[in-house]
Simulated scan of single mutants.
Amino acid sequence: MSFQAYLDNIEAKTGKNPAGFRAWGKDKGFGAGAGLAPGVKAGEIVTALKDEFGLGHGHAMAIVALLKGAKKEGDA
Results as ranks from 00 to 15, higher is better:
1 M>K: 08
1 M>R: 10
1 M>F: 02
4 Q>I: 06
5 A>V: 10
5 A>R: 13
6 Y>P: 04
7 L>I: 10
8 D>G: 01
8 D>K: 01
9 N>I: 04
9 N>C: 03
10 I>T: 09
10 I>M: 09
11 E>R: 07
11 E>H: 05
14 T>F: 01
15 G>E: 07
16 K>T: 07
17 N>A: 14
17 N>V: 06
18 P>Y: 08
19 A>G: 15
19 A>N: 15
22 R>H: 14
22 R>G: 12
23 A>K: 12
23 A>E: 15
25 G>C: 03
25 G>I: 02
27 D>P: 01
28 K>L: 13
28 K>Y: 12
28 K>M: 15
31 G>V: 14
31 G>Q: 15
32 A>W: 00
32 A>Y: 00
33 G>N: 10
33 G>T: 07
36 L>G: 11
36 L>S: 12
36 L>A: 11
38 P>S: 11
38 P>R: 09
38 P>E: 14
38 P>A: 12
41 K>V: 13
41 K>Y: 11
43 G>Y: 01
44 E>Y: 00
44 E>M: 05
47 T>S: 13
48 A>N: 06
49 L>N: 08
50 K>H: 10
52 E>H: 03
53 F>W: 04
54 G>E: 11
55 L>E: 08
55 L>R: 04
57 H>G: 11
58 G>E: 10
59 H>K: 09
61 M>K: 14
63 I>L: 06
65 A>T: 11
65 A>H: 13
66 L>F: 03
73 E>V: 01
74 G>Q: 08
76 A>T: 13
76 A>M: 06
76 A>D: 15
